[in-house]
Simulated scan of single mutants.
Amino acid sequence: MPDQNSTLRAQRRAETQRMIQAHALRLFTERGYDATTVTDVAEAAGVSPMTVYRHFPTKEDLVLFDQNGRLVAERIAASSAVHPLVRRIGIALIDSAAALTGGGHADDLTANRRFLLARLRLMISTPALRAKHLDNHYALQQAIVDALGDDATDPEDAFRARAAASACLAALHTALVRWAEDDGRTELPEVIAKALAAAFGDDIVGTGPDR
């Protein structure tokens, strides 16, 4: 069936991307970002440089590429419009972080959490990645606005949505830096919730099935 074949291709593509990215993060961590070439990554992953570039158009993408934008957008699109924008966006950021880190106890980091920690450390310590990260910030902001759909079609509504998204993403960035500095010993969703509460008040992130 065409749909099944399409799904299998997407799964294989995602597996190849994750494999290449894992080797890239390991080499960047061991040798340094600037000292590692795309050819080095290709050799470690057992693929050609062309294959690496097919999945990651730039060297920076080997670190910055993730699924967070898609996860956040899906959760915002499914959220209730009765809640304030910052609450809808904040909860989506928390829930997507929970999905990316895979849960678990703080003293037993999962592979997903170690993977995310490696990416964050590189983004924080590498000037070229910090600059490129700003592009990702704008892309995620736009993904959030797009996910709000009819709630952000009017120019004024879109402006408010961008402002809310930008403020929430600033809190997210602060939380990610804190989590990386703490070596992932705390739960990332909890750190994000704490950062959002500091910015918007303790009641901005609710609990329960209707949140």
Rank of each mutant, 00 (worst) to 15 (best):
A128K: 13
A128H: 13
A128T: 15
A128V: 15
L129R: 12
R130N: 15
R130Q: 15
A131S: 14
A131P: 04
K132Y: 14
K132V: 12
K132D: 15
H133M: 15
H133G: 14
H133C: 12
L134Y: 15
D135V: 13
D135K: 11
D135S: 14
D135I: 12
D135C: 07
D135A: 14
N136W: 12
H137P: 02
H137C: 07
H137L: 13
H137A: 10
Y138M: 12
Y138F: 14
Y138V: 12
A139D: 15
A139M: 11
L140Y: 10
L140C: 10
Q141F: 04
Q141W: 09
Q142R: 12
A143C: 09
A143I: 03
I144R: 03
I144V: 14
I144K: 02
V145N: 07
V145Y: 07
V145F: 08
D146C: 00
A147E: 08
A147H: 06
L148D: 09
G149V: 04
G149I: 04
D150I: 02
D150S: 11
D150F: 01
D151C: 05
D151K: 03
A152L: 02
A152V: 03
A152F: 05
T153V: 12
T153W: 05
T153Y: 08
D154H: 09
P155Y: 06
P155K: 03
P155N: 07
E156G: 01
D157G: 00
D157I: 00
D157R: 02
D157K: 00
D157M: 04
A158N: 03
A158P: 04
F159E: 11
R160Q: 08
R160F: 10
R160Y: 09
R160I: 04
A161Y: 09
A161C: 07
R162V: 01
R162I: 03
A163R: 11
A164H: 04
A164G: 05
A165D: 00
A165T: 01
A165F: 05
A165V: 03
A165N: 02
A165W: 03
S166R: 11
S166E: 07
S166A: 13
S166Y: 00
A167S: 11
C168L: 04
L169C: 04
L169R: 06
A170I: 05
A170E: 08
A170H: 08
L172H: 11
L172R: 13
H173S: 08
H173K: 04
A175F: 02
L176N: 08
L176Q: 12
V177H: 06
V177F: 09
V177M: 11
R178H: 13
R178L: 06
R178A: 14
A180L: 01
A180R: 04
A180H: 09
E181M: 05
E181D: 12
D182F: 01
D182Q: 05
D183H: 13
D183V: 01
D183S: 11
